[in-house]
């Protein structure tokens, strides 16, 4: 079963680049990635640029409208994700707990919907 692990944190709550903690933090991500590969759950994942670079798009009455900024302004921002193929939710929770940002932010696990598309 596939899960999207959405990684949220508020600005300035985690280790900052250039500090001593930053190295350990990034190492934590490298270690998590290694475990995901070893467990065979890794399907993909990326860090995202800050929400200040986001563009929101919608189509109304056939017209494309673009807006500067994220869909919703929240204190905790989506900063990255993994796509994990796990045995069940228990394994997904164990994997999510390895994400260093979970120490100060929140990882939301969303099951990928099973849809049968018409052929």
């Amino acid at each position: 079963m596939q899960y999207l692990a959405l990684i949220y944190s508020a600005d300035g709550t985690g280790p900052q680049p250039g500090t001593e903690e930053w190295g350990a933090f990034m190492q934590g991500y490298a270690d998590a990635g290694k475990t995901y590969h070893a467990e065979g759950v890794m399907q993909g994942g990326n860090a995202l640029e800050h929400t200040s670079t986001a563009t929101s798009v919608r189509v109304r009455d056939g017209k494309v409208e673009t807006m500067d900024g994220p869909f919703a302004e929240t204190k905790e921002r989506l900063g990255g994700y993994y796509l994990l193929d796990c045995k069940d939710l228990d394994q997904a929770i164990r994997m999510a707990a390895l994400i260093p940002t979970a120490q100060f932010g929140t990882v939301e696990l969303r099951p990928i919907m099973q849809v049968e598309l018409p052929e």
């Binding site: 899960y3 796990c86 045995k87 069940d88 939710l89 228990d90 997904a92 164990r94 696990l109 099951p111």
Partner: peptide, 18 residues
């Protein structure tokens, strides 16, 4: 059903918490 909570006794590493 949808979130993949399996109908099982937890694995040893999850036992205490579960």
């Amino acid at each position: 059903a949808r979130a993949g909570i399996t109908y099982k006794v937890p694995e040893p590493e999850d036992w205490d918490a579960r």
